[in-house]
Computed example of a mutant assay.
Amino acid sequence: MNLTAYEAAAAGSVAGFVAVLVGGLVVTATLIWAVLLGIKVRKREPRRPRPDEQPRLPASGAVRETREQREPNAITGDDRLTPHDLRPSGGARSGDQRRPRWNRGSSGSFGSGGPGGA
């Protein structure tokens, strides 16, 4: 059976319409499934804390960061130091508490040896 060009185009457009319709239904079903799965997972999670269960500031107020300069640890012996050999807080508190600054003419990077950028 020979189809005219018009009939072939009409048959193609119907097939295209059906393909788009089926694709849309698949996407819609997938989105509905994802929402239902999200609801199911959320029901298994512990409930959110109520306002009266939220953490409170201590009576002394907020805890602030403390910065101080420490003396370097003394290295004794010829053995290589590993992290568990070091004390966690460094050496004793330094008498000079001024913050170290970059030297003029220094690049500021570690071990570059260059004169720095101008």
Results as ranks from 00 to 15, higher is better:
residue 12 G to C: 08
residue 43 K to F: 01
residue 45 E to Q: 13
residue 75 I to V: 15
residue 44 R to E: 06
residue 12 G to R: 09
residue 63 V to C: 05
residue 22 V to E: 11
residue 108 G to R: 11
residue 48 R to D: 06
residue 78 D to G: 10
residue 69 Q to Y: 12
residue 115 P to A: 11
residue 39 I to K: 06
residue 112 S to T: 12
residue 101 R to E: 13
residue 58 P to C: 03
residue 51 P to L: 13
residue 66 T to M: 13
residue 106 S to Y: 12
residue 100 P to T: 01
residue 105 G to H: 15
residue 20 V to N: 12
residue 51 P to H: 13
residue 44 R to P: 00
residue 65 E to T: 11
residue 27 V to N: 04
residue 105 G to P: 04
residue 60 S to R: 01
residue 114 G to K: 04
residue 62 A to N: 07
residue 49 P to H: 00
residue 6 Y to I: 11
residue 34 A to Q: 14
residue 91 G to Q: 00
residue 102 W to P: 12
residue 15 A to T: 02
residue 64 R to W: 01
residue 79 D to P: 05
residue 87 R to P: 05
residue 99 R to F: 09
residue 8 A to P: 00
residue 43 K to E: 14
residue 40 K to H: 09
residue 47 R to C: 04
residue 57 L to E: 03
residue 79 D to C: 05
residue 6 Y to L: 15
residue 98 R to Y: 06
residue 110 F to S: 01
residue 31 L to C: 12
residue 68 E to K: 15
residue 115 P to Q: 11
residue 86 L to D: 02
residue 27 V to L: 15
residue 88 P to H: 00
residue 30 T to V: 07
residue 45 E to S: 06
residue 25 L to C: 12
residue 4 T to Q: 06
residue 32 I to Q: 05
residue 114 G to I: 07
residue 87 R to D: 10
residue 21 L to E: 14
residue 23 G to D: 07
residue 8 A to D: 03
residue 63 V to D: 10
residue 71 E to C: 03
residue 92 A to E: 13
residue 64 R to L: 08
residue 85 D to H: 01
residue 94 S to H: 03
residue 9 A to P: 00
residue 75 I to S: 08
residue 20 V to L: 12
residue 105 G to R: 08
residue 37 L to V: 06
residue 100 P to V: 05
residue 104 R to S: 09
residue 28 T to G: 12
residue 9 A to E: 10
residue 90 G to R: 00
residue 45 E to P: 01
residue 104 R to P: 10
residue 12 G to E: 14
residue 42 R to A: 14
residue 59 A to D: 03
residue 8 A to V: 02
residue 87 R to H: 06
residue 60 S to M: 02
residue 11 A to E: 05
residue 68 E to W: 15
residue 37 L to C: 05
residue 50 R to T: 11
residue 54 Q to F: 14
residue 36 L to I: 10
residue 117 G to L: 11
residue 29 A to P: 03
residue 35 V to Y: 00
residue 69 Q to D: 04
residue 19 A to E: 07
residue 51 P to W: 09
residue 84 H to E: 15
residue 85 D to K: 03
residue 78 D to H: 14
residue 111 G to S: 11
residue 75 I to A: 11
residue 69 Q to R: 12
residue 113 G to F: 08
residue 111 G to L: 10
residue 28 T to R: 10
residue 91 G to Y: 00
residue 34 A to H: 05
residue 100 P to E: 04
residue 101 R to Y: 01
residue 80 R to P: 08
residue 5 A to V: 07
residue 78 D to V: 15
residue 86 L to Y: 12
residue 6 Y to F: 07
residue 55 P to I: 00
residue 41 V to A: 12
residue 46 P to Y: 00
residue 100 P to K: 03
residue 27 V to I: 10
residue 23 G to C: 08
residue 68 E to C: 14
residue 1 M to K: 12
residue 81 L to T: 02
residue 9 A to F: 06
residue 35 V to T: 08
residue 41 V to L: 04
residue 29 A to G: 14
residue 114 G to Q: 04
residue 54 Q to L: 15
residue 12 G to M: 10
residue 99 R to K: 15
residue 89 S to K: 14
residue 5 A to W: 03
residue 103 N to I: 08
residue 79 D to A: 15
residue 15 A to F: 02
residue 70 R to T: 01
residue 9 A to G: 02
residue 117 G to Y: 07
residue 24 G to T: 07
residue 34 A to R: 11
residue 58 P to Q: 03
residue 79 D to L: 10
residue 32 I to Y: 06
residue 62 A to R: 11
